[in-house]
Amino acid sequence: MLHIVNKSPTERNALASCLAHAKAGHALLLIEDAVYVATAGGKAALAAAPAGLAVYVLSPDLQARGLGGKAAEGIKEVDYKGFVELVAAQPRVQSWL
């Protein structure tokens, strides 16, 4: 399962709910306003992530917010092509609105 979150965790509980339902072997992609989570300052919101959850961030959305190249350690940046590859690699997608 690829989980997609697009809202800041200080605005909505989508990320928290996602982390509570994600499992080992799943992937999480942070896009739009969720990319703040991928930075050193925002990473605390990922503390509840299950072990074995691979976390990705969409780099164009980071760049747009002045955070280009600032993804915290352990979080992989992907471009749109990488986004497509993630979708293709996982059997299902769940968007947390």
Binding site: M1, H21, A22, R92, Q94, L97
Partner: peptide, 14 residues
């Protein structure tokens, strides 16, 4: 609930 979600073919979010 998490396990049930993980065994679906399609998940639609609202």
């Amino acid at each position: 609930m998490a396990s049930l979600m993980a065994e679906q073919d399609v998940v639609l979010s609202f």
